Amino acid sequence: MTKTILFLGSTGGVALSALRRALNANHTCIALVRTPSKLTALFPSPPPANLHIIQGNAHDVPALTKALVSPSNPSQLVDTIVSSIGGAFNFSNFSIDDPHVCERGIEALVAALKQTRESGATGRPNIVVVSTTGITKTGIRDVPLLMVPLYHLLLKQPHKDKEALERRVAESGDRFTIVRPSLLTDGGENAAGVRVGVEDVVKGEVESKAVGYTISREDTGKWIFEEVVQGEEGRWDGKAVTVSY
């Protein structure tokens, strides 16, 4: 069964990887982007017929309300939201250009969902957000010991933003899946596959553990598409899933 999927942060990285696969599987895909030409340049001309591009900022509530409904039925919310928005890392201060980019994004998304429902749209989309390893509150380490200083000292500010993202999406009242990749790389698919660790966010319990150094953005998007978008409905609801090599 095809779905209607909203992609945020789709001009590169994880969301772009998932978007390409969703388009190839004939899902209806909506991409909210600030500069549409950056996205269309990544596809043959003309772009796929099942790709609907809306110009706007993922922090802008009015733009999000337009993107949250099915192109063929404005009274119906999208089935899935895949968000991998983030900022550019600044090595001079070990922070990102917008220290609250993820927090502001999820706040805007939750507000837009509320407004869209108040306008009469129905549906309960699964919100899939890309977070990071190293911020679990269970006390069980999910990063290699050698990388603990990097995660907890050098990446302290970006991780605060991811913590706010996770907290707000878990409190939203909507379906959600948190994906926590290891340190992201620009490589392609890994023939050896992806290892998965699962945390039940509601219960605060670790169901399985996966500790690794890196994973590519390509494979992270592939996992999101195959497991959350195409996979068993509801399997990853309320879970924080570590993906790593």
Rank of each mutant, 00 (worst) to 15 (best):
L51H: 05
S10E: 05
V130F: 09
S17M: 02
V101H: 09
D237Y: 15
V143N: 05
C102K: 13
H100P: 06
N126T: 15
M147E: 00
I53D: 08
D174E: 15
E233H: 12
N24R: 01
V148I: 07
K239S: 12
K38I: 01
T40C: 05
F94A: 06
T116C: 06
S182M: 01
P62F: 10
L77Y: 00
K38V: 01
Q115S: 06
F225P: 00
S37H: 05
K156V: 07
A67R: 04
T122N: 05
A210Y: 06
T177Y: 08
A121K: 02
D98I: 14
T2C: 12
T40H: 10
R34Y: 12
N93I: 05
R235N: 14
V201H: 10
K203E: 12
P149W: 00
R124I: 12
R20E: 00
V241T: 13
G13H: 04
R124E: 15
D200V: 12
A112N: 03
V206G: 07
I85Y: 05
I178F: 12
T133N: 11
T2G: 09
R141D: 07
A22W: 05
D186I: 11
L154R: 07
S95N: 07
A170E: 07
G188D: 01
D97S: 13
K222W: 02
V243R: 04
T122H: 09
A210R: 02
G120N: 01
I127P: 15
R117N: 03
V201M: 14
L68V: 09
G12L: 05
S244R: 08
I81R: 09
L113K: 00
K3R: 15
V33I: 08
L150Q: 07
T122D: 08
A88H: 14
L16H: 04
S45N: 06
T80R: 14
V229I: 15
V130L: 09
V148E: 06
L146T: 02
S72L: 06
K66W: 04
E205T: 15
T116S: 04
P46D: 11
Q55P: 14
G134S: 13
K66S: 03
G187P: 04
E205S: 06
R180N: 12
V14T: 06
L154H: 06
I127M: 15
S10R: 04
E232K: 14
P71C: 02
G238M: 15
I96L: 08
N93Q: 05
D237L: 12
V243H: 08
T185H: 01
V179R: 01
D174S: 13
H152I: 11
E171T: 09
P47E: 08
L109F: 05
G197H: 11
K203F: 10
T136W: 12
A240F: 08
G204I: 05
G188E: 01
N73E: 04
G173H: 08
P44H: 00
R124Y: 12
T132P: 12
